[in-house]
Design a binder for these strands. Sequence first.
DNA 1: CATATGACGACAA
DNA 2: ATTGTCGCCATAT
Length: 121
Amino acid sequence: MKLDTLKRNEKIWATICDIPAGSVASYGQIADIAGIPRGARQVGYALRHLPSGSTVPWYRVIQASGTIAFKIGSDAFNEQSKRLINEDVAILNGRIDMKKYRWEPDLDEFLWKPTAAWDNE
DNA sequence: CATATGACGACAA
DNA sequence: ATTGTCGCCATAT
């Protein structure tokens, strides 16, 4: 395995770890944030190669359409649905409402990151 | 080097 | 809403 590939995968995994519980992100979204424009498939690749036993919340990554990437009825599909529902992410007719659950990192950081204006508190 | 593949995504019918 | 096509890009053969 090439070193670049490893670094890219680690960046992707790290990004996914930033998705808060109760939210989801699309493959393309993760790719963009990880600095890999149009790298949706690379995110899929990175997830498929997750080291066993890792704590990366892979199940919070779904397709841009709001559907789970696995075949309906497959073990992986069932496992992912279960974990999402466990975090109160509703799945109606096999789909997730992206408008409602999509992770918005920019807004998050804006609200969370301290700014100079607040330094004198 | 040429093809095939895939945990994707956007768009046209 | 569903389905098919095409674009994308790292890997595998």
